[in-house]
Structures are given as structure tokens and as C-alpha cells.
Amino acid sequence: MANLKIKIGNLQLKNPVMTASGTFGYGTEFSDFIDISRLGAIIVKGTTLNSRQGNPYPRMAETPSGMLNAVGLQNKGVDYFIKQIYPTIKDIDTNIIVNVSGSCVDDYVATAERVNSLSNIPAIELNISCPNVKQGGMAFGTSCKSAQTVISAVRKVYDKTLIVKLSPNVTDIAEIARAAEDAGADSISLINTLLGMAINSETRRPILSTITGGLSGAAVKPIALRMVWQVAKAVNIPVIGLGGIMNAADAIEFFLAGASAIQVGTANFVDPTITCQIIDGINDYLERHGYSSISEIISALEE
């Protein structure tokens, strides 16, 4: 058994496999299929200060090797999370990370502050990259200045590990990543979904109620891999790679490109047991290639 342990900020992971926010519910949805405590971390659904109904149906369109979603951060708000959900998941033997979203800086700060008080939540992932909400979300992650404003404000009230999730819908991802690092991020995760669109030619209508939505799944992997590679070169904090990881070989590619950990997202919809298969597959790869630890393959791309 190779050493799969990895550290992200002050966060100790038993292995580098996390679940991407919005694709794994609160974790317990998958416990009939896998032992969720085997995971390195579970990143729970995007949580906002106030309850959100999300966007109207239809919110999903299947696309070649992927899907578009426009869920729009449906959740019952941070106070509901703290009272109703946190007690049911806090003792799962893995890192439970809350994905924090908002529509203005004050909302991000207030939500992060409340989550900071939860002893069994060792980290947050600041979502400045949701493409499916009218206000905030991705708008914060597409300019260095607005990214820095929200990250610095959250940094002041949040003293545990702060991961910032970046949007791929930018011209220069490295520049945004450096801005996030300067503003106090402990780690960067990328990529969130790519803004896309689907049309039904028969009805001449958009398929999604919101017209545009976020593209995920196998189709986005080459873009995600390129961006992780660019960001890993640009910053000195650990990078968490995600985007179209469907199996262990995909995950290995992200480590080679510079990711210290990975998240599995849309693949959970295709196979709810895939995260555990990826953990085993990473171990097999390391053993097969004679590595004793996951850290040996991070940024080990031979260029």
C-alpha cells in the first residue's frame, strides 16, 4: 500500500480523493453504495447565507460526454445546515468541507463566519465561480480585483483552511490564481463548470430554463487539465484539480499536471462507487510504477 496521505493547508487528507460540491449531496446519499469514510474529503453542497430555491426546471441537459446544469445553488441556507445537517454528518470519519457561496461580499463573510464556528468542519471552499446565479457567484471569480476583495474579507473571519474554487470562464486563469493566493487562500481548486448552452432544434427553444448553464463531465477534462497545469506553475499553494475525472487514470493525469489532490464530480452520477475505485486505482498506479507516495507524482510531468 503506497502512502496516499496529503496535506492541503492545515488539512490532513487520508488520500487525495475528494468529492466535488453539488455532485455528492451531503455524502450520506451515497452511503448505500460505498463507505464514504474512505474518502479524503467530502465537499458538501454550495451553502449560502439565506435559503435559495434555485432555478426552475429544466435544470439539466445531457451533452456529448458531459452535461450542463443550471441548479442555481438550491440550498436551505447556512443556519439550516448548522442546525439540521451538520449534526448528522459531523462524525463521519473524513474531512467534511463546506462550499460557501454568496451574492455579495457580506453574505460570503457572514456564511464563512458561521461555518468557522463548527469544530468538525476543518475547511471551506469559497465558491467564486458558480455560473448559474444572477448575482455574485462567477462574477467574483472573473476579475482579480473582485476575487481579492471577497477572499481577503473572508480570510479576516475564517481561520481554518481556505480553499478558493476558480472559474474557467476567464482569459488568464494564472492571474486570478495568483490574486487568490495574494489575498490569503490556502489552496485553489479548479475548475468549476464551463459556461455552455444547449438548444432543442425541433422546438427552437433552449433546453435549460436559464438558457445557459455549466458544462461538466468527461468533455471538460482537457481544459481542466490545462488550467491546473498553468495554475500549479503560477502559485506556491497546493492546487486541487477537478473537471471531468471519470477514473483513476484521469486522476493521475491531474497529479502529474500539478494537482496535490483531486475532486470527483459528475462521475458520481454515472457510477456512485467511482470515488472508491479511484482511490484503489491511484494506489495500484503508484505500486505499479514503484512509487511509495502520492507526493512523488505531483507535478512529475516530463515536459
Binding site: F24, E29, F30, F269, P272
Partner: peptide
């Protein structure tokens, strides 16, 4: 998508 209440689609 998921069929198990995770994706909210």
C-alpha cells in the same frame, strides 16, 4: 442525472 437526490437536477 444522479437518481439519488444528490444533483438536484
Amino acid at each position: 442525472a444522479c437518481g439519488i437526490g444528490a444533483c438536484l437536477c
